[in-house]
Nucleic acid binder design. Structure first.
Lengths: 169, 169
DNA sequence: TTGACATAGTTAGCTAGCTAACTATAATGT
DNA sequence: ACATTATAGTTAGCTAGCTAACTATGTCAA
């Protein structure tokens, strides 16, 4: 996602609005600021995870596996739940398996299928990462009280509903 | 950025909170939802831009150039303003130059420097993209009234201030 | 004036996304 | 029973990020 270091000032936006009368300045500002804060958050999260040798994609796979009672899933299930292409999941699993955090177990009944299981090392990794992640996240959100959290989720829900505007037609 | 198709249910979060007592469930929900909506927005924006043969990185470079009175800048300035590494900018400019949307002009005075200029084709491209982008963005944000926009920006500002928690130490 | 440092840009090689095409296997319908 | 279709996973090649290292050029101080 774009970093947007340099958000447009009101003057710049006005200048653009002159050429492009469709521009809704307050909508643009709000939208870009939302993208910007989220991108920065994502980068900060990555920085936190990378101290443990993980990035978001690989970390999320471990979490998805830990959610399962059997600590086991399949590449296609994982790719759906993580919202990435199956091919991307292959790459993530290659890396995780290389580091010994998951293992591939070949299904003898359906030879197309592979089970992916969290290893003890993978669980140890989560036990190191999650407390760190949770306590930093808690600190990050400390300034936002319950009411504001609810409001934020509500407004994001509205944006979420309107999102189709970008892709329709 | 992670797609997070499958956000944790309250049950999953409680299960995790048992193992990791640092977990602040409402903070986690809000945080993940913010990341998720922003990621989806970013992907939707890309889908809109890709109909014009652009993606966020390349599109933002064109916008930065159009902001300049001379429609001209340098790779390092652009990389700072776009928040990407200089090396990344080299790649973006390669693509834009290949498509004829910008040109590299070598500075005769300081032979280390290169000027990047928006071409007529680049301006035409913006004139096609921006009205489409602005009107879709306006539709997307239509459900969020002025008050909610202000609130959203305010809350994001607080999150932004707390973000250092992820990177400190 | 020349040696050290600073700046501008590029290259190389990594991660992590994507789509499209491929292999292997299973399921299904005629 | 066999051809077709569907499913699971991987591979290959693309974009767009990154860091580190490199080249070339300028600047400045001893």
């Amino acid at each position: 996602m774009l970093q947007l270091r340099d958000l447009p000032s009101t003057e710049v936006l006005s200048k653009f609005a002159q050429r492009y009368p469709q521009a809704d300045i307050s909508a643009i500002s709000t939208f870009l600021y939302l993208l910007r804060v989220a991108t920065d958050l994502s980068a900060s999260l990555d920085e936190c995870l990378s101290r443990h040798g993980l990035l978001q994609g690989r970390w999320w796979v471990l979490i998805l596996l830990m959610r399962e009672d059997t600590q086991t899933s399949t590449p296609s299930e994982l790719s759906e739940k993580a919202g990435v292409a199956r091919a991307t999941m292959t790459g993530l699993l290659d890396g995780l398996a290389r580091d010994g955090l998951v293992t591939r177990i070949f299904d003898p009944n359906d030879r197309r299928r592979v089970s992916i299981q969290l290893t003890a090392m993978g669980q140890d990794k989560l036990d190191a990462v999650m407390p760190d992640y949770y306590s930093r996240l808690s600190d990050c959100m400390a300034g936002v009280d319950e009411a504001a959290r609810t409001q934020l989720q509500q407004i994001l829900g509205i944006v979420n509903k309107g999102m189709g505007a970008f892709t329709k037609d």
